[in-house]
Design a protein around this nucleic acid. Sequence first.
DNA 1: ACTTGCTGTTGCCGTTTCGGCAGCATAGTG
DNA 2: CACTATGCTGCCGAAACGGCAACAGCAAGT
Lengths: 327, 327
Amino acid sequence: MTDKSPTADRPREHALSAGLLARVFHQPSLLYFNAVAIHLSIREAARRLNVASSAVTRQVAQLEDALGITLFLRDKRRMRLSPAGEILFRHSRRLAAPMEAAVSEIELLRGVRAGVVRIGTVESVGLSFLPRLISDFGQRYPRLTIDLSIISSSEVVERLVEERIDIGFGFISKPPRQIDIAYRRDVHIGAVMVPSHPLASAKNLTMDQCLDHAVAVARPEISIREVIEPFLRRPGLALPPMVEVNSIRMLVELALGGHYLSVMTPIGAQNEIADGRLIFKPLHDPGLPTNRFGILVRTGSALHLAPAIFFDHAKSYFDGLQLPGAI
Amino acid sequence: MTDKSPTADRPREHALSAGLLARVFHQPSLLYFNAVAIHLSIREAARRLNVASSAVTRQVAQLEDALGITLFLRDKRRMRLSPAGEILFRHSRRLAAPMEAAVSEIELLRGVRAGVVRIGTVESVGLSFLPRLISDFGQRYPRLTIDLSIISSSEVVERLVEERIDIGFGFISKPPRQIDIAYRRDVHIGAVMVPSHPLASAKNLTMDQCLDHAVAVARPEISIREVIEPFLRRPGLALPPMVEVNSIRMLVELALGGHYLSVMTPIGAQNEIADGRLIFKPLHDPGLPTNRFGILVRTGSALHLAPAIFFDHAKSYFDGLQLPGAI
DNA sequence: ACTTGCTGTTGCCGTTTCGGCAGCATAGTG
DNA sequence: CACTATGCTGCCGAAACGGCAACAGCAAGT
């Protein structure tokens, strides 16, 4: 009797071959049709399939009857695909991939098959979302290795182009041609501060108001800085003392200290925002763009199985996430 | 007995439904698995499938045995998909499309189904390649209507963006974001002239040499003109008398006249080149780009069936074509 | 012209698979 | 407690599959 415990499987003595998968999923008439289409001979197809030629003849005829379509032209001793047969043959080639992909993914799931996903992420995403995402994923796919690098946005792009990572997480608004933002969420830029900050109750907060106070911002090598740079100005007035740091985590800590107001997205501070220790107020400066969070892959080339599964997993994860500050 | 004449079909009294196609192509175990995955109940799946629940139970169990995988978790009276079952279920959704597409295309082929392809093309391609291409296509798909417009390259792009045509043929090197060059061939730009022209025996012909003679070129609204414009210069010397026309056909006629040398690609003159009345000599000016011939579609949105089939047909046609002047 | 070897198809039959019916054990609901 | 629902199993008849033998017709070799 079958074992009913979760994820218990029914061990097979042999791996699942493409031929066996075909027999499991598809009708013999389709299999025999494909074999005849390949060999253009009933007898040769029968030999390859290890069945009698009469079985092949009957199955093909039954398929033609069922569809009401002539699939082969019988020309003396030769079989030729009819135009309709060519069409069916061409489309039926697309049936193998889903089933083989399903089985491969199931084997990954069961730990029968191993794999590696190489990830590059900016710190704010890496420290906030990926731990949970990767933990969920690792439990589900125990034989998968995850190779994670916390790097800058520009280095995410660089490593993707150089094929040193498979998937990138970062804030990039204009990637190079070789990179595709396969998933994107736009997030407001704003001020993160303690609830007791003087600006905590301000309506329609602007950068100019922020600059009346001590401000912490990211250094130029962090991509958000490029976005807010044009707004770090106040004509005719001196800028306040600012702290420039190269860590979003440090911006959060500075805001927690109470003295500084940190200019950032809420990503990286969502825990503190959720439990009330910090608040996030979007900036309303005209022309201030949102920050574009994205999951990045290389353009064109299909992901290998493990990174593809991880990508789907990450996409579903973020789809179901109430991203703070999201539009 | 079946009619063996070419393209004779076996008429059916009813159209082919998705359900019937599923039964024709796929094993009942997969069909019943999918039904249970949808309804999470053996009895409900059985009702929808119009079979006994025992049949469903057995087919699902046989699939699990065949694959060596547990697909459902039986929780008292409830069925839940196992992780492996979720994977198979997700991938099996991709099986319907190829078979339904095959049947739809076959119905187009048989004239059971009608369709329209709206095409926009530049004159040079429209008059030279498309007549044969469309003739072949029309014979194969008798119920398809082809709506052809001969327009400028820029208008090809414009009409694609406005969804007034489905497929465009033209020379565009930098399409807007909404347009994809789904197929491209690069073609040399050069001089078309009669064999008796003084430059007919020139080696490594340049624009400067051409400008020693009477030259015919395209007007600015034809895209090739933009490409060659920077080369229509000779510092310190006067330009020769030039004819500017808005018809590639006219360029060919002018070249045939013997007096003019026409600056163009060989597309539009390939018949005259093939039979020796004209010759084509590529220009060797440093920095002169090739001209990019392309089949254009709208980015992202999938083509409807008829345009998709026409696109495949056109692609195969050009793949098998010895395009004169091609790189 | 004859012979041999190949093709696809058809008749017949045994085996395998499918699915219905009846009944079982168990869980949920009134 | 009674009733209704679930998934599963034993048994059996029907349907489908495929093998064997033979056929008709075509191609190639002698």
